[in-house]
Design a protein around this nucleic acid. Sequence first.
RNA 1: GCCUGGGUGGCGGAAUGGCAGACGCAACGGACUUAAAAUCCGUUAUCCGCAAGGAUGUGAGGGUUCGACUCCCUCCCCAGGCACCA
Length: 863
Amino acid sequence: MKEQYPFNEIERKWQNYWSANETFKTDTSKSDNKYYCLTMFPYPSGVLHMGHVINYTLGDVIVRYKQLRGFHVLSPMGWDSFGLPAENAAIKTGAHPHKLTEKNIIRMTEQMRRAGWGYDWDREVATSHEDYYRWTQWFFLQFFKRKLAVKKYAPVNWCESCHTVLANEQVHDGHCERCGTSVEQKDMSQWFFSMSKYAQRLLDGHKQLKGNWPDAVIAMQEEWIGRSEGARVNFHVKETGEELPIFTTRPDTLFGVTFMSLAPEHPLIEKLVKGTEHEERVMKKVKHLRQQGTSEKDIAEREKEGIWTGFHVINPVNGDIVPLWVANFALMSYGTGAVMAVPAHDQRDFEFARKYDIPIKIVIERPDSPLNPESMEEAYVDTGTMVNSGLFNGKNNFNAMPDIIRWLSDQGHGEGTINYRLRDWLISRQRYWGAPIPIIYCDSCGIVPVPESDLPVRLPGDVQFKEGGGNPLTSHEEFINCECPKCGKAARRETDTMDTFVDSSWYFLRYCDPSNQNKAFDKNIISKWMPVDQYIGGIEHATMHLIYARFFTMVLKDIGLVTFEEPFKHLFCQGMVCKMAYYCETHKWLYENQVVDGKMEGDVILNGKCKECGTPVKSEMTKISKSKFNVVDPDKMFERYGADTVRLYMLSDAPPDRMQVWSEAGINGAWRMLNRLWDTVLSGMEKIAPAGTPSPDELDPVNRALRRKAHQCVIKATEAIEGGFHFNTAIARCNELLNQLRSDGDKAHPAILREVLETVVRLLAPIVPHFSEELWIRLGNTGSIFAFGWPEADINAANEEELVIPIQVNGKLRGRITVAPDTSREDLESLALSCDQVQKFLEGKMVRKVIVVPGKLVNIAVS
RNA sequence: GCCUGGGUGGCGGAAUGGCAGACGCAACGGACUUAAAAUCCGUUAUCCGCAAGGAUGUGAGGGUUCGACUCCCUCCCCAGGCACCA
């Protein structure tokens, strides 16, 4: 029996070595050739999942690769340790969130060590620690000072039974994730960061991110920011004279307005109808419209619905008097909450007009066949000639747009404007386990910021968590009661804490200067080490964390705390880890242990059918999740195969930005590769030349070919890594080299044997570091393999001695010729034409053209 | 509906204008073994053929080119994101 390589012993040994030698400790006072590699820090849930494994493996491989390339690498790790799960667990078990969090951090640190990921642990930060959140609070005060942190009324998702607001992610189909209660919209006074002011800058910043960030992330952010150009036009209520501005992207259709729609939440509605004959009728309907669900499903299936307010508006461009409606498709959160309606040229308005029998007026004429308001079945939204539009008649609507906007503003009816969908960032949370917002409310002085010298505002430890889930700070008298910093009178402290995305909007800065007691960070260190050279994380953060962190950094730049405004130079998003899951109609998702990998056979599945009920079992390749019973426990994998095998498998099958498919058979392949290499080195040891022996100049063809392959392998593997972290093809090149060595092994020259094996081991070192360190030593070298740098290819050794040139006739492969690499164009042509295999395809044909691509191929065009 | 990816053997994928299917998995055959596992060697896109060889083949259809998985146009399907955004 072949011996398996002793991964347990080896991995422990080298982890201790790296730790003892401070391999990943970074001196930030030196910044020449710096490389800051950052992976998104985790929430300390207590266990690593496969998503962490792919994320941090990728980061670690890049860190080690860059170290080998001679960079001075910063590789920190920390904890996004405030958040709901710990608080929810506290409510259930009574344990304090702090204790629970610290326990989880210890457990996960141990798991990370076991995976072989190298971090500078001296830089560890945890957002729930006082020495971190005091600076989160300090930043809040800086925002407040510049009116970028403001308190205002806003509708929020409120769960009555939990007595708290919920983040959007916690609302599923309009119901509270935890208790199932229907979530209501409630106006509450909340703290916001004025992010919408930065909408254009966030968009502009994309210019320097293009090509360095995944296109998908930039596209998602652009969509999220949602810039649209148009005009703001002032309508007036005919009966009251009140001004009613609207936003439109189609000022060219202004002359076709036949009604106006208000969002059901629009404050004007109540104001207008109050005390009139319309009040009861309108408000009843409005109440109904306001209660309509906001889930995606509700919106998609909802029919257009509304009611006439009893009032009219005057169209400023032509004096038309049109009815003012309330419509369920108008949104209070976008534009002004009021929409001009042009049924002839907008599909939503068209459907609404048809339903309520509102007139349709054509103002853009279709080029080929004229439109008929009575018979048209959908709105005409394309380009055409303007009609019924006063002085713009006869013009092309799209071309006339700038003129129309100019005219509107000359006439005082409105102006050109840009609207963004991006909203201000609601940072208030009615939760305990977060950074307290450093604000005091005084009856005489109003809203007063906590003086910077009083920071941090500490979370009290002695809190009682309520069954209902409410914020225990609201009943903690000692916390709430304080003195007003301005007048000294009794005052009350803000009990809301900050959204945890605030904590994670600056952690990458703190890593550069983690133990600074006087400042959040030293500007000099930051200006040398930031921006992050490579950021790695999941794409699910595209419109949350990655926008927040960019916004935060822009504000810090405006304040003068940093010198750049884009924090992450390059972004890489790894694919999610998927695994086959099995499903039967009656028994739902089937537990994975009952399934033999890939075969749908086992305790509950037989011949593709459920053993219990005989129903055919369906399978689905899907994201690893507990609910589908297809989870993989990283700890078990480390135990069975060792960290290196898991690391190798994660990178060997697909490029890391694609979905990763987990299969037991696949990891076995990685395991075999390492064992094969281990065996090749150990069994060849008595033959291998001593360390440091150079390869001789005079070699037989087999050894020249081996050496050539080794040097080509270095070139190709390096290209694969540099060109987008394609470790899968780099690994494939190593396999090819290893395969060639194993088939020619007995003929290998002792020095070539060493050169080839060392090449493979060195190329694999970032991916399987423990394994490579060990083999490097066993090969007779001294010191860490990472001290020897990345292998360099010898171009002369890599060059082919002869080339096999394919010969095509009319683009079809018909033969091959073997030639010297420097064979001339003319020689290639005549060799190709006289080649035996090709001759029969040329018989009776006329050669029209011969295309010669030196070093590549010859194509003969005949007819 | 819009935006972003993607569609290549039984499977993961490779090749971004020049030999399609590298590398790996699975499968099959063989060696070793009392046997199994492990390991090692070999075969493996499809079709025709004993073979030599030939034909077909990268979601579908068209185009550009000496030559297209690759570039252009039209369409279909899958994944993710956004979505009554005026």
